[in-house]
Amino acid sequence: MARSNLTMFPNAGKYDQFSSLEQHLLAWNVPPSELIHIPSHWLSYPEPEASIHILLGLLYIAFFLMSMLGNGLVIWIFTTSKSLKTASNMFVVNLAFCDFFMMLKTPIFIYNSFYRGFASGHIGCQIFAFVGSMTGIGAGMTNACIAYDRYATISNPLEGKMTRTKALVMILFVWFYTTPWAVLPLLELWGRFVPEGYLTSCSFDYLMDTFDNRMFVGVIFTFSYVIPMSFIIYFYSQIVKHVMDHERALREQAKKMNVDSLRSNQNMQNQSAEIRIAKVAVTICFLFVASWTPYAVVALIGAFGDQSLLTPGLTMIPACTCKAVACLDPYVYALSHPRFRVELQNKLPWLAIKETVTETQSNVSNTTTAAQA
């Protein structure tokens, strides 16, 4: 491959090579001064067809619009509606904040895609990866906080209510916990941020074959994936166990009293609302697993496994899954919240939502998802 192509700048606006039948390698249009920032692993792969870049760019435009709408509405409604200003909902707002800012970086990806590669350069790559690390790990730990809040509220409803002070301290801890894993690679004190896949997205370097880098990958894998995942699985499993034990106790008591059920109509309505909210919790847990597990697997393969398995196309899959979940989170969390829909109806009546909240729904919602401080 002739290296004269490396003198082409991606933002020149003219690509006579597009009409050529010759297939270029990745980074063919990257200036030599920027090549040092690209792992050599990607330089041996052919560049994808222009249509792949365009499709990914259009997909990210859709992600961007969905996220701005969904997360923007969540932040707006939850911060301006008095009935939703609860301690527990502070975590929902923080999650929406993470997802909102995660998707604010997508214009960098879109720009790179339409210019077929590393068009935004090293600075754009660092911004993209830094924002992604802060918001991605922050969202994971916020999900863990939400799981803990629901576990504490359901397992101990009298003493487990979240206070505003406690919620604020937990949110500050989340950002204190997250910051080192974004700052260290940004300053290249430990690890570094580099382009990946089609060179249109950036993440921490999981390909550099050094002991320090492998150690960094192992540590960030533990702190950004294993720890929040363990908390989420533990707390939600305890919630399920608590509900099952409660149901078993009710059945045994009903059997002793020779009745079919101890539940009144109101209790049955409460149970229905609790089941609906539990389904939302399980959905969020599943979304977290589905979004970040591919990234975790790719990073482990790159650091400790067979790097030849990591093709540019394969590594773009986890980059898309985590962005997709950042778009879905607000719709799963907020649109399943009866009071959110009521407030949305009040502020934007032209949406014709026509939502009503019964006293039962209100009490259950306050008990399980938005305990008053």
Score class of each variant (00 low, 15 high):
residue 91 F to V: 13
residue 32 P to W: 00
residue 7 T to L: 09
residue 247 E to Q: 06
residue 227 I to P: 13
residue 352 A to T: 10
residue 345 Q to F: 09
residue 28 W to T: 00
residue 75 I to K: 01
residue 144 A to Q: 08
residue 21 L to E: 05
residue 28 W to M: 02
residue 88 S to L: 07
residue 134 M to K: 03
residue 135 T to V: 14
residue 292 W to I: 15
residue 205 D to K: 06
residue 211 F to I: 09
residue 8 M to V: 15
residue 127 I to R: 02
residue 187 L to Q: 02
residue 42 W to N: 08
residue 150 R to I: 13
residue 107 P to Q: 04
residue 331 Y to D: 15
residue 194 V to Q: 01
residue 125 C to A: 06
residue 87 A to K: 04
residue 7 T to Y: 06
residue 267 N to S: 14
residue 366 N to K: 13
residue 148 Y to E: 12
residue 60 Y to R: 05
residue 305 G to I: 14
residue 60 Y to V: 02
residue 227 I to W: 09
residue 88 S to E: 12
residue 220 I to W: 07
residue 134 M to V: 12
residue 6 L to N: 08
residue 344 L to P: 07
residue 248 R to W: 13
residue 116 R to V: 14
residue 119 A to S: 07
residue 324 A to H: 03
residue 349 P to Y: 07
residue 40 S to E: 01
residue 346 N to P: 06
residue 13 G to N: 07
residue 105 K to H: 02
residue 148 Y to Q: 11
residue 325 V to S: 10
residue 135 T to C: 15
residue 266 Q to I: 14
residue 8 M to Y: 08
residue 311 T to E: 09
residue 252 E to G: 05
residue 371 A to Y: 11
residue 119 A to V: 00
residue 55 L to P: 11
residue 7 T to G: 06
residue 87 A to N: 04
residue 258 N to H: 11
residue 58 L to I: 06
residue 222 T to F: 15
residue 258 N to Y: 11
residue 191 G to S: 10
residue 62 A to G: 15
residue 173 F to P: 13
residue 302 G to S: 02
residue 360 T to C: 11
residue 90 M to I: 04
residue 192 R to F: 14
residue 351 L to H: 01
residue 348 L to C: 12
residue 280 V to G: 07
residue 43 L to C: 03
residue 143 N to T: 15
residue 160 G to P: 10
residue 98 C to T: 13
residue 130 F to V: 07
residue 263 R to D: 08
residue 282 V to F: 15
residue 64 F to D: 05
residue 114 F to H: 02
residue 117 G to I: 03
residue 228 P to W: 11
residue 296 A to N: 03
residue 33 S to F: 04
residue 289 V to G: 05
residue 54 I to A: 14
residue 140 G to C: 14
residue 184 L to R: 03
residue 122 H to N: 15
residue 156 N to C: 06
residue 52 I to R: 01
residue 89 N to D: 09
residue 298 V to H: 07
residue 10 P to C: 11
residue 126 Q to N: 13
residue 118 F to R: 00
residue 341 R to Q: 08
residue 301 I to S: 04
residue 330 P to L: 02
